[in-house]
């Protein structure tokens, strides 16, 4: 009998006399530790936080405008979407510090006075390979802003901006749930979410290859 066979025997002998419990504990420890790593530590490492230049109260502004979101996030005449407002939209009101918040002070002193654009961090920024037409969805598709963007319009302060250290994407693309589970339509902004909605709404599926929407409808 070779040495290794002897060893095997020894091991099996050990296993039979009560070692199974300890072994099982080790299994559980491994399981728990890695679950903690995967569910708790990993998201913390994967996402970094960045501060917005200063805070912004959507709810407050929403009350003061006539046309809802589109008052500031408007469509240009050529159908393109303006995105985050530019300084010259804001200075119509904010030539001087009006409120008492520190954020407004920062805004006026650092940006308005120096005529500098505010480097907003955009939560829903899609990567360069994506073509997204707000006009097609909001104007032609008559979709609501909140379908994709949620209730940001009623928020009184800006959420923390988080980005993925590998992809550089905003966390809102994958969604805040690390497992990728979503409850609301605005929880995630991945390709599959677009595809899902397109399928549900019977958007024309003209691709020869996939029998779905042709790739370049959304990709450039």
């Amino acid at each position: 009998m070779s040495a290794s066979q002897e060893k095997a025997k020894e091991v099996s002998a050990k296993a039979s006399d009560g070692g199974a419990g300890i072994v099982f504990i080790f299994f559980i420890v491994g399981l728990v530790v890695s679950l903690l790593v995967g569910w708790v530590l990993f998201p913390k490492v994967l996402y970094c936080q960045k501060e917005q230049p200063f805070d912004f109260n959507h709810a407050l502004h929403n009350e003061m405008v006539l046309d809802g979101c589109q008052s500031c996030h408007f469509f240009r005449n050529d159908g393109t979407y303006s995105g985050a407002p530019k300084l010259n939209q804001c200075i119509e009101c904010h030539t001087d510090v009006q409120g008492i918040t520190k954020d407004e002070e920062i805004f006026v002193n650092e940006y308005v006075r120096n005529n500098r654009e505010v480097p907003w961090l955009v939560y829903s920024r899609q990567p360069d390979c994506v073509f997204f037409s707000h006009a097609a969805h909001v104007l032609a598709g008559e979709m609501q802003c909140k379908t994709c963007h949620g209730h940001i319009g009623n928020s009184t302060s800006l959420p923390v901006y988080e980005y993925n250290i590998i992809t550089g994407y905003s966390r809102n693309i994958w969604g805040h749930n690390i497992s990728g589970i979503k409850k609301n339509t605005w929880d995630r902004m991945k390709m599959d979410d677009c595809a899902e909605c397109h399928r549900e709404n019977n958007v024309k599926q003209y691709s020869v290859q996939t029998k779905k929407g042709p790739c370049f409808v959304c990709h450039k």
Binding site: F26, L31, V33, S34, L35, G38, W39, I178, G180
Partner: peptide
């Protein structure tokens, strides 16, 4: 255990 845990994590 760790492998199982990692697989079961995102």
């Amino acid at each position: 255990g760790a492998a199982a845990g990692i697989t079961l994590s995102p």
